[in-house]
Every structure is written in C-alpha cells, then in structure tokens.
Write a protein that binds this DNA or RNA. Structure first.
Length: 454
RNA sequence: GCUCCUAUCGUCUAGCCUGGCCUAGGACACCGGCUUUUCAAGCCGAGAACCCGGGUUCGAAUCCCGGUGGGAGCACCA
C-alpha cells in the first residue's frame, strides 16, 4: 500500500488499501505502508497523519514501520548512478520549452506524444535523467484481474526517471522500492495500468524480479468519471465526521468492485479476510452509490449497543453541545433513535427534545380536523391520566396499555397532540417511549406547556 | 489524436471460463400493501437489465467476428 501524501486520504486510495489489506491478510503475508512523498517531502506532515488516522479508523493495520520515499533518497541515488554508469540512462539537455514544442507538434501530427532524445549518446552531465529506451518488442505481463496485457514500448519514448541524482520521479522510485522492499504483489488502481510497462522496462534494466500486478477497477462518480472532489466528499475524514461507522464503510468498499458470489452482503472484516480473492474482483469501474452506503451504515448502527454508539459519536467528533448529560440517559435516547438512523450526525437534531424544551408551532398539535377545544380537551385528558400514574409504574408498557384503553377508535385524537407536546416534532418515536425516558414530572410539564400554548 | 481497459435492472452485482437447470437471481433505490397516532424499523408485493449487428449451434447472457458506447493513461505529479 503506497498512498501519496499530496492530499487527504482519498476514498479511492482507501479502497485500494482495503483490497491490499484483505489480500495480504488472506494470504497470510505482510502488508506494509509506504508513503510516496518524493515531491512533497516532510513539509506536508499533516497529510501523512491524515492517511494514518484514516487507515487506523478503518481498522487496517500494517506490518513494520512506515517507510517514506523522502527518507530513501540515498537508495534511489545508488540505482540511478548504476543506470547512468551502465549507459542505460542519460542526461537530456533539452529545455522544457523545447519539449513542449515537440509535444505539440506530435499531437498535431496525430501521433502519441513522446520524447526520443537525439542527445541520448552525447553524454551530457546536466538536465533531466531519462531512460534510454531501446525496447522494440511488445511488453507483455499478466494482470491478476485482467489477464494478459501487452504494450508497444516504442510509444513510451525515452521516459523520465529523475530530475537529478537526488530527486527521483515516481516510476523510478516505485520500481526501486518494490525491489528493495521485496514487494511480491502490486495491487493498485486501474489508472496505473499504463505505468506498468515503464516499470517493467526499469525492472529488467536493473535486474530486478517482476512482482505480480493487479489493477483494480476505478471508483466512479455518478457521471461515470473517476471519483473526484466535484462529486462531493472524497476524503475519508469527511465520512468519519458525518457519522459513518468504520465497519460499514469498510464493508461497503470491500463489496464495491468485488463480491464473493453468494447473496450475503454484510460481512465482518474477519469474514472478508477469509473469503477474499483477487479472481473475483470486477473488471469494470463501479459508481460510488452513497444511498447504499447509507443503508449499510443503518444496518451497522442497528447492530451496535448504545454504549458502542456513544463511543463512535465521540470518535466522529459529534457532540450534543452544552446539552450533554449523563451517559446513561444518552444511551436510552440512542436506543430509541437507532432504527431511524442512517448517519450518526443525524442524532443531535433528531433527539434535541430530550435535552431541552421542544419548540414547535401550535398548529402542529392538530390531528386531522380537530379544533382547538378538542385539542385542549385531549391534552387535559392526557395530563389527568399521567397525574394518576405513580412514579413507580411510569413505564412505557403501563402507559401504552392505559392510553390505548382510553383512546377512542381514532387513536390519533389522543396520541398525536400528546406526542407533539412531548417532542415538538412531526416525526418521532411513540409518546410512551419518550415519556419513559423524560419521566413523569417532565412529561406532565410538557403537556401542560402545550395546553398553555393554545 | 494515440495507447490501453471495459460493457447484465437507475445503482452495486450473481450467472459467462465448463452453452440447455435463465421465464436472467440477489441487494440498494423507487412504487404499492400490511403494521401503525407520526416517522422509521420489520414483513409482503410490483416494476425494472443481458449495448448493437452478424456468425457457430438443435439451443447463446454464456463461444467467435465486427461495430458502438463508457472509462483511464499519454508530465521535470504521484
């Protein structure tokens, strides 16, 4: 797994991490974390922190220390010198402007843009370091997901390796990393397919063995293009903070572009590790469908204990502000709203009436065609019934039994105004459940409050 | 433009390799019903797809050929 710290942990990168992780653990192999920061260096430390946080949140652990390309410059230098010495690489003296002009004219001639350097044997000693590409036979490799792939190496030209001895470029650095870190499987996004022939050429030139390649289908936005910022939230942190559960996110990403063949869709991380296979990875890109993630998140939320939910709330940074109260009380509230939740972030807004007096429009108290007198009568009745109940037997079973017996054939006449008086909302759990949590005194107080409003 | 990848309901997918069990299965979403004071949850149900054209075959979603659509890559980014 090798994310680049040029930004926060991207959803696509997270999915690649998940697949790498699942495969490595499935095979009982090692899974390492390598930060590709040759260009950014140490200055962007917070991006690395974001990546690490994101992976930890997902429950992905790696073997050994994190390796950073910025700390391996000496190693790259050694190999770049080797290529230079063996006359497999050279300094290209052309300026960026010249190169740009060449590119444009090639495009104009409807040719694939590339640079075959006319100074490759001139032994210059400054400029961009390029690979002396003399390959002419097709480069063929087996992709674990797509089968045999082949490319014409001539189209690559003399591709670039490094800006100078101590500033390697991506394709060169990864090849050195893969070999020196003994990477057996390179599992990455489909957008890297066209980098593979360059890397193979370099592996051959350096005498390295070839890893197994597997290219994952891309995650697409709703318009079928590669998922990016304009499609909405693409950073893992954003999903964490709006209250997606890591298990749900992990599960969802794992079955996006892969499935085990059966009809089950909800899997624990352990199950996924056990059944994962590269063979069953999809070839075509998959649209990131947030509504299915929402559903799955709801499933996971319903499967959690209130204690676990309140811990997730804390981790996601979702707070109830100054209304925060005893955790025991909060947990009761959570149980009540659990079946209604898709995202944890909905919780504070949905349950605010448990922490403060509800605010609502008097008109909301009206059930169907009731007039003010009827509403008032209904609420008075409810209040008297509540007053008749002892503190001890003030629980939802008792209350429900009482009220259902008392209510006429249209239960709404008694129950709707009561529920609104308690919650101030047009949608909420039943009044009995609410009252049990609110308690006798507060319940009566709210019913009285509603009566006063009319 | 060039190169490469890819194609089953709106979306994610099963089936394809090893043709017949496919009247194409599941899930999400949508719609309807049950339950219900409301909203959810739950249960039941409906609609919805083999990209197109040829071929091979008794028989093709599955095999072959040709189109078309979609995507990605073509940096002194990673």
């Amino acid at each position: 797994m090798a994310p680049s710290p040029t930004g926060f942990l991207h959803v696509g990168t997270a999915r690649t991490a998940i697949f790498n992780f699942l495969y490595a653990r499935h095979m009982g192999g090692e899974f390492i974390l390598r930060i590709e920061d040759t260009d950014v260096g140490r200055s962007e430390k917070h991006f690395e922190e974001d990546i690490v946080d994101g992976l930890k949140w997902l429950g992905i652990d790696w073997d050994g220390e994190i390796t950073r390309q910025s700390e391996r410059i000496d190693i790259y230098e050694k190999y770049i010198k080797k290529l230079l010495d063996e006359d497999k690489a050279f300094y290209c003296p052309h300026s960026e402007e010249e190169l740009e002009r060449e590119r444009k004219s090639q495009l104009w001639d409807k040719k694939s843009p590339r640079h075959v350097c006319d100074a490759r044997d001139k032994k210059a000693n400054t400029g961009l370091i390029r690979f002396k590409n003399d390959a002419f036979e097709d480069i063929t490799f087996t992709d674990e997901i797509r089968g045999e792939l082949s490319f014409d190496p001539q189209l690559l030209g003399d591709f670039s390796l490094a800006k100078d001895l101590r500033t390697p470029l991506y394709n060169f650095a990864v090849v050195v990393d893969d070999a020196t870190m003994e990477i057996s499987h390179v599992i990455r996004g489909e957008d890297h397919i066209s980098n593979t022939p360059k890397q193979i050429l370099l592996e051959n030139a350096l005498g390295f063995s070839r890893p197994v390649f597997a290219h994952l289908p891309l995650i697409l936005g709703s318009d079928r293009s590669k998922l990016s910022k304009r499609h909405g939230a693409t950073s893992l942190t954003e999903y964490k903070h709006v209250g997606y559960l890591p298990e749900a996110f992990f599960n969802f990403m794992a079955i996006l572009g892969w499935n085990p063949g059966g009809e089950q869709e909800i899997f624990s991380k352990e199950e996924l590790i056990k059944i994962f296979s590269l063979e069953r990875v999809q070839k075509a890109g998959a649209i990131f469908d947030i509504t299915k993630l929402d559903w799955m998140n709801g499933e996971y939320i319903r499967g959690k204990s209130p204690k676990e939910i309140s811990e997730c709330l804390k981790e996601a940074g979702i707070s109830f502000g100054s209304r925060a109260s005893k955790s025991e009380y909060l947990e009761k509230v959570i149980v009540l709203e659990q079946p209604r939740l898709k995202k944890l972030s909905e919780l504070p807004e949905k349950t605010d009436y448990f922490f403060k007096e509800p605010e609502y429009d008097v008109a909301l108290l009206k059930w169907k065609q009731m007039n003010n007198n009827q509403i008032k009568f209904s609420l008075e009745t409810a209040k008297e019934m509540l007053q008749a109940v002892s503190e001890k037997s003030f629980n939802k079973e008792n209350l429900e039994k009482m009220f259902l017996e008392k209510a006429g054939k249209d239960r709404g006449e008694l129950l709707w105004p009561l529920r609104v008086a308690l919650s101030g909302k047009k949608a909420s759990p039943s009044p009995f459940e609410i009252m049990e949590i609110l308690g006798r005194e507060e319940s009566i107080k709210r019913v009285q409050g509603a009566i006063n409003k009319i």
